[in-house]
Design a binder for these strands. Structure first.
Lengths: 124, 124
DNA sequence: TTAATATATGAACAATAGTTCAAATAATCC
DNA sequence: GGATTATTTGAACTATTGTTCATATATTAA
């Protein structure tokens, strides 16, 4: 984890004041793929509607219209976001009759969510 | 932390299948303000450039042009993002001559970043 | 099969985000 | 002071995002 960045930029014309620090700090950048995935993971948590959806599902599975009712938004809007979360394996789902019940799947995201919730009160 | 949502939506015409679950799950939603802040916090970590900037600053302060050189992006682009991070108190800065040295300030964000990095390898 | 229910999907739209470019500050050096 | 260096700022531009609306699919019930 956290291998040096493999991107060989054209630093030829880049202005640099402390080449040593730049060299050293560059190693702190995770590889491009990891950064991309990390950004995507955080990004998916960076929306109020999706956060509420995840919060609401912490206590157990729910069907689409109930989730929508919980948040006070359109079922269509919820469905679109559910799909995003489902596609990225943050949610599982199960059909029972005409209803689809969604539930949390990824414990990593749950952890991040929990940590965020614990800290948000202290955030400036 | 995690008080019931105060938003009194117009659920009049909302379709609901399990009113009890909706009622119960609704309490899992943090208050609107917290959700908003949490989303903002996650959102700021949801961009590759900003993530790299934070990673690069983990080992110590750096000036703008060096950060830009590290990431291989324009100084202007870095400056714009630095301002966002600075405005939200994620970074501090210090002037020395003509250079401005930025450094990490918020330990909460550092923690989130660290947790994310530890998990990103296992993420699907 | 037809009607009704529950959810998904796609196009369209407005809003937002990130980068670039040019120009403006700010601090130093001569 | 004027020139140079380091960074900031604002406007413009493109790309992306989240929602809405209308429609499509899927399951059940009659």
């Amino acid at each position: 984890m956290m291998e040096p960045s493999t991107q060989s930029e054209d630093l030829c014309d880049a202005r640099v004041i402390h080449p040593d620090r730049v060299e050293r700090a560059r190693l702190e950048i995770a590889d491009e793929r990891s950064v991309e995935r990390l950004a995507e993971a955080f990004g998916i948590l960076g929306d109020p509607t999706r956060l509420k959806m995840l919060m609401v599902l912490r206590k157990g599975e729910m069907c689409v219209c109930d989730i929508a009712a919980c948040l006070g938004v359109t079922e269509s809007a919820v469905s679109h976001q559910l799909r995003r979360l489902y596609d990225r394996s943050l949610l599982r789902r199960r059909r029972e009759g005409r209803c689809l019940y969604y539930r949390l799947d990824d414990e990593h995201v749950s952890e991040l969510l929990q940590l965020g919730l614990e800290h948000v009160g202290e955030m400036k």
